[in-house]
Amino acid sequence: MSFYMTYLARWPDYFHVAEAPGNQIMGYIMGKVEGHGESWHGHVTAVTVAPEYRRQQLAKKLMNLLEEISDKIDKAYFVDLFVRASNTPAIKMYGKF
């Protein structure tokens, strides 16, 4: 829990939750900004979409939001993320962005 609270306290603009009617959580994204000079960038720490809301481009919308925040608030040069090499569906999805 302290990991998430530290991120939230330090980078609150990089936390977003997508809610369905009735306050059901559809998905969320959390990130941060890091680096120096030309390597100053936004970083996606976690992006998750509930199974019943997948394939509706919600992850894309959350990723675009984090990219926009990285650019407009922190003037980041790019956004990165890490994914397991075995996570083929995620790699394909991120490759489209």
Results as ranks from 00 to 15, higher is better:
1 M>E: 12
2 S>V: 15
5 M>T: 07
5 M>K: 15
6 T>K: 12
6 T>E: 08
7 Y>H: 05
7 Y>G: 02
8 L>K: 06
11 W>T: 00
12 P>Q: 04
13 D>N: 05
19 E>H: 00
20 A>N: 11
20 A>S: 14
20 A>Q: 11
22 G>H: 07
22 G>T: 05
26 M>I: 12
26 M>N: 10
27 G>F: 00
32 K>F: 08
33 V>P: 04
33 V>N: 06
36 H>E: 06
38 E>A: 14
38 E>L: 08
39 S>M: 08
40 W>R: 09
40 W>I: 03
40 W>S: 08
44 V>M: 08
45 T>Q: 02
46 A>H: 10
46 A>N: 08
47 V>R: 01
48 T>Q: 00
48 T>P: 00
49 V>Y: 04
49 V>A: 07
57 Q>W: 09
58 L>N: 09
60 K>F: 07
63 M>R: 13
63 M>S: 10
64 N>H: 10
64 N>Q: 09
66 L>R: 04
68 E>Q: 15
69 I>R: 04
70 S>T: 07
71 D>E: 11
71 D>Q: 13
72 K>Q: 13
73 I>K: 06
79 V>R: 02
81 L>Y: 05
82 F>D: 12
83 V>S: 04
83 V>Q: 05
83 V>Y: 02
84 R>D: 14
85 A>S: 14
86 S>M: 08
86 S>I: 13
88 T>W: 03
88 T>D: 09
88 T>Y: 08
92 K>S: 14
92 K>W: 12
93 M>R: 08
94 Y>W: 13
95 G>S: 14
96 K>L: 08
97 F>K: 15
97 F>M: 11
